[in-house]
C-alpha cells in the first residue's frame, strides 16, 4: 500500500500524481522504490477520478469495528 498512500498523499496535497512525485515521496520515506510499480500505479490512475473514489470510500465509514477500549 505504500505506493497508494504516496499517491493519496500527493493528491490530497494538491500535487499531480506523477512518477517523479511518487518516487520522491517514497524515497523520503526510505522506501527502495521499484520503478515498475510506480509506473503501473500512475498508469492505473490515469483515467480515474481520485476524489470520487475517495468520497465513495468515505460512505463506508471507518470506526465501525468494536472499539474494545
Amino acid at each position: 500500500m505504500e505506493y497508494i498512500y504516496a499517491a493519496l498523499l500527493l493528491h490530497n496535497a494538491g500535487k499531480d500524481v506523477t512518477e517523479e512525485n511518487v518516487t520522491a515521496v517514497l524515497k523520503a520515506a526510505g522506501v527502495a522504490v521499484e520503478d515498475a510499480r510506480v509506473k503501473a500505479l500512475v498508469a492505473a490512475l490515469e483515467d480515474v477520478n481520485i476524489d470520487e473514489a475517495i468520497s465513495k470510500a468515505a460512505v463506508a465509514p471507518a470506526a465501525a469495528a468494536p472499539a474494545a477500549a
Binding site: 497508494i4 493519496l8 473514489a53 475517495i54 465513495k56 470510500a57 468515505a58 471507518a62 465501525a64
Partner: peptide
Amino acid sequence: TIGAIIGKAVREARTV
C-alpha cells in the same frame, strides 16, 4: 480495481 484500492487505503486511513 484502482478505485477499490484507493477506497481500501482511504478506509484504512480513516479507521486508523
